[in-house]
């Protein structure tokens, strides 16, 4: 049996593949603590990284979340994590990110809205935690690759009662 793809189909599959590879690379850099590379090569200068509160659904205007970093604070987060000042990440925890259900929601040519599911396992300091969430990315197309302009991780947990803290970048 042969499968015939139209030119459009082929382009969509290729784009989906490139987006998936991009997100897998991001996961790998974060897992390997290559945070400066991640910050410099994968994000735009006006990146916004947010994790909404677990007791609100959707993103109601005015609500407080858990993380709402602009580029400067995210850069600070990266530096602190790398220079050992983050007491709860020193020694560094081991993480393993599973990215799945990658879906291109809208393709506006120069921008893509992408959804993905994520499980981040974190091991360290005698404990193991799993963070489960749904991600939304706004990707800016840059040649054959992308940069992330908006990165939202909506946790599915009701509370972080067992985790206590969220000291890694999800």
């Amino acid at each position: 049996m042969t499968i015939e793809l139209t030119v459009d189909d082929a382009a969509r599959v290729r784009l989906w593949h490139r987006v998936s590879q991009f997100l897998f690379r991001e996961a790998r850099l974060l897992d390997e603590w290559r945070l400066v590379e991640w910050y410099d090569e994968m994000l735009t200068g006006d990146i916004r990284y947010s994790v909404p509160a677990t007791d609100v659904r959707g993103e109601p205007a005015g609500a407080l979340g858990l993380i709402d970093d602009d580029a400067a604070r995210l850069r600070q987060r990266v530096e602190q994590l790398l220079n050992g000042e983050v007491w709860c990440e020193n020694p560094r925890s081991r993480t393993n990110r599973m990215i799945s259900n990658v879906e291109i929601l809208t393709d506006r040519g120069s921008h893509l809205d992408v959804a993905a599911n994520m499980v981040v396992y974190r091991f360290g300091h005698g404990r193991s935690d799993a963070y489960v969430g749904k991600c939304r990315f706004e990707l800016v197309v840059e040649g054959e690759s992308f940069r992330i302009r908006r990165r939202v991780v909506v946790l599915d947990h009701e509370t972080l009662y067992e985790h206590g803290k969220l000291s890694i970048i999800l």
Partner: peptide, 11 residues
């Protein structure tokens, strides 16, 4: 109170 609680814990 601003909407959005931080619900966490500690062992």
């Amino acid at each position: 109170v601003i909407q959005g609680a931080q619900l966490h814990g500690a062992r």
